[in-house]
């Protein structure tokens, strides 16, 4: 907290905080207001006398009805959930095991391998989707959820591994040594001691992985083609932008409902998430 005179608190804390919050929350506000604004208000030029961009007195549910009735939005939601959950589960499983191995087993080249895994994470997806689409085609996975479930781990596993490596390093190694003296084999020490202690780290890796796969765009755009296979980000863009016409109402409604699961995931785990990113373990 800022100490001293009242004006100091206003100038150095409250005002910057307010600006930051407005900057952060305005897109959500815009999304909500557009969702409920009738088309007649959406498409008037700014110089008209009755132009009121920040509020509406005639809220409508027409855009929602259109989104849920005329498009396959609910199927997109289901697709996205299914793909994100399965891809996250696979990546977490591999990431936790790999992170543990890289941080705790002193094998030759462990540090090099850790760095290499991180570098694979840095390869841009815009380059990687070309060879990947070749592989997807070879195994006839195109236009199925599995094309994404199997390609998301290419960036999620390095990410989870890297995050878990850091977290496992913050767990005192005596905990594990003590467990092993207490009669636990290495896998038991990991299962009963290290993983329960690392839950905050695992949760934050999970939230990150889930969000990344939920919002992923390029692979989904390239690998999926039929409307009933699409995920929310791709579906909304490809079905609600026709040529140069933007269906702003349904688009924003789709964006709003598409961001709700992620928001719920964050708020649900926020405590663990924060301690996972910042905290270490006290013995």
């Amino acid at each position: 907290m800022i100490e001293g005179a009242v004006w100091r608190r206003w100038v150095f804390f409250r005002l910057p905080m307010a600006i930051f919050l407005i900057f952060l929350l305005f897109p959500f506000y815009w999304m909500i207001i557009t969702t409920f604004r009738p088309d007649g208000e959406l498409y008037i030029p700014w110089y008209r006398a009755n132009y009121k961009p920040f509020w509406t007195w005639n809220p409508t549910t027409a855009h929602l009805k259109y989104l849920f009735g005329e498009t396959t939005f609910l199927i997109w939601m289901w697709n996205t959930t299914f793909i994100a959950v399965v891809a996250t589960a696979i990546s977490l499983f591999c990431g936790v095991l790999a992170g543990y191995a890289l941080s705790r087993l002193n094998f030759r080249g462990a540090a090099l391998l850790g760095t290499t895994i991180f570098i694979t994470y840095l390869v841009p997806q815009t380059l990687l989707f070309i060879p990947l689409s070749e592989i997807i085609r070879t195994y006839s996975l195109g236009d199925t959820p599995w094309s994404l479930i199997l390609s998301y781990p290419t960036f999620l596993i390095p990410f989870c591994t890297w995050l878990m490596m850091g977290y496992f390093k913050s767990v005192p190694k005596e905990l594990e040594e003590c467990a092993r003296i207490d009669g636990a084999a290495r896998w038991q020490a990991m299962l009963y001691i290290i993983i329960p202690v690392a839950v905050p780290g695992i949760l934050s890796a999970m939230i990150f992985a889930f969000t990344l796969s939920w919002n992923e765009f390029i692979y989904a755009l390239v690998f999926l083609s039929s409307p009933e296979q699409k995920t929310v980000p791709v579906g909304v863009i490809s079905e609600l932008v026709r040529g140069d016409v933007f269906f702003w109402g349904p688009l924003m409604a789709g964006a709003l409902f598409g961001s709700i699961p992620v928001a719920i995931a964050y708020s649900f785990f926020v405590e663990q998430y924060v301690s996972g990113v910042t905290g270490s373990v006290k013995g």
């Binding site: 005596e174 905990l175 003590c178 003296i181 839950v199 013995g283």
Partner: peptide, 14 residues
């Protein structure tokens, strides 16, 4: 068949 006491106690926090 040994037992060890560590400097930082190494109690299982959970």
């Amino acid at each position: 068949d040994i037992a060890m006491v560590f400097q930082n106690y190494a109690l299982y926090p959970h």
